[in-house]
Design a protein around this nucleic acid. Structure first.
Length: 291
DNA sequence: GATCCGTGGAA
DNA sequence: TTTCCAAGGAT
């Protein structure tokens, strides 16, 4: 199967079935794409959309966010999860404002130098905000490639040295076509070639899918849990402490923060970790606030 | 390369 | 109820 035919099947399907998402609107600014990509790092689309709208209304350009205290980004992040992303996004806005004239960079190496931007996000911005031709590799695309091309039930662990060439081999030559292919592959993984219960009967690649041709072999060894238990974890404790601080504009004494976490040892680790990450600051003797 | 980092909805 | 997992990045 030629790569061009593979890509054409995806692009044609995407033209018919793409969701109407905010960042796909004509004229959506690169800054909006950048903010959306930060929010979409490990957070589902449906939870991102309302928060993205709030952020872009309040901070329509990088300089507006850069002018705020970083704690305001943490507060406005609300319950999107992984609040370190809010801090990095703020730092990213500062860097764009001070080092790049307030304009979201276009080239991948420059994007990779910004806080919170890694292999995925750098290429996503270059492709979706500026229309340049690069392979984009996210968890959806890795799964689609693993199944349709390699005939495996699921993707192996992320590996840029292997994943980027694999996607490059499928990428159309034309810039715009390549961008639609990247987006279409992600959409296919999100809607059809899903992690659980894929909808193969609706898949535009069914006729050429290596996994289907092999009879849908399953994973041989049981995979270990993707995450440790959240209940009773340090992450849960950090979330509980931060939730208290997000809810007030004033500094809060440790005695009151401690009420949010039952286990004293866990509370101690949570506060120490949040301080180390810069998500909270000490403003007095055992009194804390957002940065 | 393994581990850490939130939150919430679906199966 | 428990488990899975969602447009990752940093260390």
């Amino acid at each position: 199967m030629p790569a061009t035919a593979f890509a054409a099947a995806v692009v044609d399907w995407f033209a018919l079935h793409a969701r109407d998402l905010p960042w796909r609107r004509p004229g959506f600014p690169p800054w909006g794409t950048l903010v959306s990509e930060f929010m979409l790092q490990q957070t589902p689309v449906v939870r991102v959309i309302p928060r993205l709208d709030e952020w872009l209304t309040r901070w329509p350009e990088p300089a507006a966010l850069a002018a705020e205290a970083p704690g305001e980004a943490v507060r406005a992040w609300q319950s999107l999860g992984y609040p370190r992303r809010a801090l990095r996004l703020h730092a990213c806005a500062v860097a764009i404002t001070t080092e790049h004239g307030g304009v979201v960079p276009r080239d991948v190496p420059t994007l990779l130098g910004l806080p919170g931007i890694g292999d995925y996000t750098a290429r996503a911005i270059a492709v979706f905000a500026y229309g340049d031709r690069h392979p984009v590799v996210d968890t959806n695309i890795r799964r689609v490639v693993a199944r349709a091309v390699e005939g495996l039930p699921d993707a192996a662990a992320p590996n840029a040295k292997r994943d980027l060439p694999a996607m490059t081999a499928l990428l159309p030559a034309d810039d715009g076509e390549a961008a639609r292919f990247n987006a279409g592959m992600m959409e296919l993984g999100a809607l059809i070639c899903t992690a659980r219960s894929p909808k193969c009967e609706l898949c535009p690649l069914a006729a050429q899918c290596a996994w289907r041709a092999a009879g849908y072999p399953e994973t041989e060894v049981a995979r270990r849990p993707v995450q440790k238990a959240y209940e009773g974890s340090d992450r849960q404790a950090r979330g509980a402490v931060l939730r208290v601080l997000r809810a007030t504009a004033h500094p809060v004494p440790g005695s009151r923060l401690g009420e949010a976490v039952t286990d004293p040892a866990r509370y101690g680790r949570a506060v120490a970790g949040l301080l180390a990450d810069g998500l909270i600051v000490a403003v007095g003797d055992d009194v804390f606030a957002l940065p």
